[in-house]
Protein backbone atom coordinates (compact mmCIF):
# COMPACT_ATOMS: atom_id res chain seq x y z
CA UNK A 1 0.00 0.00 0.00
CA UNK A 2 1.39 3.40 -0.91
CA UNK A 3 1.87 6.05 1.75
CA UNK A 4 -0.86 8.62 1.81
CA UNK A 5 0.42 12.08 1.12
CA UNK A 6 -2.52 14.32 1.98
CA UNK A 7 -2.35 13.59 5.74
CA UNK A 8 1.35 14.45 5.63
CA UNK A 9 0.58 17.70 3.82
CA UNK A 10 -2.10 18.48 6.38
CA UNK A 11 0.60 18.00 9.03
CA UNK A 12 2.84 20.52 7.24
CA UNK A 13 5.43 18.03 5.93
CA UNK A 14 7.26 19.76 3.05
CA UNK A 15 8.63 16.49 1.63
CA UNK A 16 5.06 15.38 0.88
CA UNK A 17 4.54 18.40 -1.37
CA UNK A 18 7.24 17.32 -3.82
CA UNK A 19 5.92 13.76 -3.86
CA UNK A 20 2.31 14.86 -4.33
CA UNK A 21 3.21 17.18 -7.18
CA UNK A 22 5.42 14.56 -8.81
CA UNK A 23 2.55 12.11 -8.67
CA UNK A 24 -0.39 14.28 -9.64
CA UNK A 25 0.55 17.66 -11.11
CA UNK A 26 0.77 16.33 -14.67
CA UNK A 27 -2.76 14.91 -14.40
CA UNK A 28 -4.23 18.19 -13.14
CA UNK A 29 -2.27 20.19 -15.69
CA UNK A 30 -3.45 17.83 -18.45
CA UNK A 31 -7.07 18.42 -17.49
CA UNK A 32 -6.62 22.18 -17.07
CA UNK A 33 -4.94 22.45 -20.48
CA UNK A 34 -7.90 20.76 -22.11
CA UNK A 35 -10.50 22.63 -20.07
CA UNK A 36 -9.17 26.19 -20.28
CA UNK A 37 -9.15 28.52 -23.22
CA UNK A 38 -5.47 29.42 -23.00
CA UNK A 39 -2.26 28.13 -21.47
CA UNK A 40 -2.14 31.17 -19.19
CA UNK A 41 -5.66 30.46 -17.94
CA UNK A 42 -4.73 26.81 -17.44
CA UNK A 43 -1.71 27.82 -15.36
CA UNK A 44 -3.85 30.04 -13.13
CA UNK A 45 -6.44 27.28 -12.78
CA UNK A 46 -3.83 24.67 -11.89
CA UNK A 47 -2.37 26.93 -9.24
CA UNK A 48 -5.85 27.62 -7.78
CA UNK A 49 -6.57 23.90 -7.70
CA UNK A 50 -3.45 23.00 -5.76
CA UNK A 51 -3.87 25.87 -3.30
CA UNK A 52 -7.35 24.51 -2.67
CA UNK A 53 -5.98 20.99 -2.27
CA UNK A 54 -3.40 22.13 0.31
CA UNK A 55 -6.10 23.90 2.31
CA UNK A 56 -8.47 20.94 2.05
CA UNK A 57 -5.88 18.25 2.81
CA UNK A 58 -6.94 17.87 6.43
CA UNK A 59 -10.44 16.93 5.30
CA UNK A 60 -9.20 13.94 3.34
CA UNK A 61 -10.51 10.67 4.77
CA UNK A 62 -8.81 7.59 3.28
CA UNK A 63 -11.74 5.40 4.32
CA UNK A 64 -14.08 7.42 2.16
CA UNK A 65 -12.10 7.56 -1.08
CA UNK A 66 -8.72 7.72 -2.72
CA UNK A 67 -6.38 10.67 -2.97
CA UNK A 68 -6.75 10.82 -6.72
CA UNK A 69 -10.55 11.01 -6.45
CA UNK A 70 -10.26 13.69 -3.79
CA UNK A 71 -7.86 15.67 -5.96
CA UNK A 72 -9.73 15.30 -9.23
CA UNK A 73 -13.07 16.19 -7.67
CA UNK A 74 -11.56 19.43 -6.40
CA UNK A 75 -9.83 19.98 -9.74
CA UNK A 76 -13.02 19.52 -11.68
CA UNK A 77 -14.99 21.76 -9.32
CA UNK A 78 -12.50 24.58 -9.59
CA UNK A 79 -12.41 24.30 -13.37
CA UNK A 80 -16.21 24.32 -13.46
CA UNK A 81 -16.26 27.44 -11.24
CA UNK A 82 -13.89 29.21 -13.60
CA UNK A 83 -15.83 28.17 -16.69
CA UNK A 84 -19.10 29.36 -15.18
CA UNK A 85 -17.55 32.68 -14.15
CA UNK A 86 -16.13 33.24 -17.61
CA UNK A 87 -19.32 32.24 -19.38
CA UNK A 88 -19.64 30.07 -22.40
CA UNK A 89 -16.97 30.39 -25.05
CA UNK A 90 -18.00 31.40 -28.57
CA UNK A 91 -17.57 28.56 -31.05
CA UNK A 92 -14.95 30.53 -33.00
CA UNK A 93 -12.63 30.38 -29.98
CA UNK A 94 -12.72 26.63 -30.11
CA UNK A 95 -11.47 26.51 -33.66
CA UNK A 96 -8.45 28.58 -32.68
CA UNK A 97 -7.77 26.40 -29.68
CA UNK A 98 -6.31 23.53 -31.65
CA UNK A 99 -3.64 22.79 -29.05
CA UNK A 100 -6.31 21.98 -26.53
CA UNK A 101 -8.30 19.79 -28.90
CA UNK A 102 -5.14 17.96 -29.92
CA UNK A 103 -4.39 16.68 -26.42
CA UNK A 104 -3.52 12.97 -26.41
CA UNK A 105 -6.33 10.45 -26.50
CA UNK A 106 -7.07 8.47 -23.36
CA UNK A 107 -5.86 5.19 -24.84
CA UNK A 108 -2.37 6.62 -25.24
CA UNK A 109 -1.92 7.38 -21.55
CA UNK A 110 0.69 5.58 -19.54
CA UNK A 111 1.15 5.09 -15.82
CA UNK A 112 -2.40 5.90 -14.87
CA UNK A 113 -3.26 5.54 -11.23
CA UNK A 114 -5.27 2.43 -10.38
CA UNK A 115 -8.60 4.15 -10.06
CA UNK A 116 -8.03 6.29 -13.11
CA UNK A 117 -6.98 3.19 -15.00
CA UNK A 118 -10.28 1.57 -14.01
CA UNK A 119 -12.15 4.62 -15.27
CA UNK A 120 -10.12 4.48 -18.48
CA UNK A 121 -11.00 0.81 -18.96
CA UNK A 122 -14.66 1.49 -18.20
CA UNK A 123 -14.78 4.36 -20.68
CA UNK A 124 -13.36 2.06 -23.33
CA UNK A 125 -16.42 -0.14 -22.90
CA UNK A 126 -18.92 2.66 -23.55
CA UNK A 127 -20.50 3.13 -26.92
CA UNK A 128 -18.19 5.35 -29.03
CA UNK A 129 -20.72 8.16 -29.28
CA UNK A 130 -21.22 8.16 -25.48
CA UNK A 131 -17.47 8.21 -24.90
CA UNK A 132 -16.98 11.03 -27.40
CA UNK A 133 -19.64 13.20 -25.80
CA UNK A 134 -18.28 12.57 -22.30
CA UNK A 135 -14.74 13.30 -23.48
CA UNK A 136 -15.79 16.65 -24.92
CA UNK A 137 -17.93 17.56 -21.89
CA UNK A 138 -15.89 16.20 -18.97
CA UNK A 139 -12.44 16.25 -20.50
CA UNK A 140 -12.64 19.46 -22.52
CA UNK A 141 -15.35 21.47 -20.79
CA UNK A 142 -17.41 21.83 -23.96
CA UNK A 143 -21.05 22.85 -23.71
CA UNK A 144 -23.72 20.61 -25.12
CA UNK A 145 -24.36 23.15 -27.88
CA UNK A 146 -20.69 23.11 -28.85
CA UNK A 147 -20.64 19.35 -28.85
CA UNK A 148 -23.75 19.19 -31.00
CA UNK A 149 -22.19 21.62 -33.46
CA UNK A 150 -18.81 19.90 -33.55
CA UNK A 151 -20.02 16.35 -34.12
CA UNK A 152 -23.23 17.20 -35.96
CA UNK A 153 -25.93 15.64 -33.80
CA UNK A 154 -29.04 17.18 -32.21
CA UNK A 155 -28.81 18.80 -28.78
CA UNK A 156 -31.13 16.23 -27.25
CA UNK A 157 -28.98 13.40 -28.54
CA UNK A 158 -25.87 14.96 -26.99
CA UNK A 159 -27.56 15.00 -23.60
CA UNK A 160 -28.92 11.50 -24.06
CA UNK A 161 -25.45 10.11 -24.84
CA UNK A 162 -23.97 11.97 -21.88
CA UNK A 163 -26.61 10.73 -19.46
CA UNK A 164 -26.49 7.11 -20.60
CA UNK A 165 -22.73 7.15 -20.67
CA UNK A 166 -22.40 8.48 -17.14
CA UNK A 167 -24.95 6.00 -15.78
CA UNK A 168 -23.06 3.14 -17.39
CA UNK A 169 -19.73 4.48 -16.20
CA UNK A 170 -20.94 4.71 -12.62
CA UNK A 171 -22.22 1.14 -12.81
CA UNK A 172 -18.90 -0.14 -14.10
CA UNK A 173 -16.89 1.78 -11.53
CA UNK A 174 -19.12 0.35 -8.83
CA UNK A 175 -19.35 3.55 -6.86
CA UNK A 176 -20.95 2.67 -3.56
CA UNK A 177 -23.97 4.43 -2.12
CA UNK A 178 -22.06 4.73 1.12
CA UNK A 179 -19.13 6.59 -0.38
CA UNK A 180 -18.73 10.14 0.72
CA UNK A 181 -17.83 12.63 -1.96
CA UNK A 182 -14.11 13.21 -2.02
CA UNK A 183 -14.48 16.93 -1.64
CA UNK A 184 -16.90 16.66 1.26
CA UNK A 185 -14.95 14.38 3.50
CA UNK A 186 -14.66 15.64 7.06
CA UNK A 187 -16.63 18.76 6.43
CA UNK A 188 -16.17 19.37 2.74
CA UNK A 189 -14.94 22.22 0.62
CA UNK A 190 -16.88 24.80 -1.27
Amino acid sequence: MTDLLLPQIAAGEPAAIDKFLAKYSSMVWGLARRFCRSAEDAEDATQDIFVDVWRSAERFDPDAGSEVTFLMTIARRRLIDRARRQGRRPATDLLEDAGTIAAPAAKDHVELHDEVQRAHDALAQLRPEQREVLDLALGHGRTHQEIAASIGIPLGTVKSHARRGLIRLREMLGVSNDDQPADQQKGGVS
Binding site: R34, V68, R76, A106, V116, A119, L138, G139, A182
Partner: peptide, 8 residues
Protein backbone atom coordinates in the same frame (compact mmCIF):
# COMPACT_ATOMS: atom_id res chain seq x y z
CA UNK B 1 -14.10 13.25 -11.83
CA UNK B 2 -12.41 9.93 -12.52
CA UNK B 3 -13.53 10.06 -16.16
CA UNK B 4 -12.10 13.56 -16.47
CA UNK B 5 -8.80 12.28 -15.08
CA UNK B 6 -8.81 9.37 -17.51
CA UNK B 7 -9.49 11.67 -20.46
CA UNK B 8 -6.90 14.20 -19.33
Amino acid sequence: ALAAAAFA
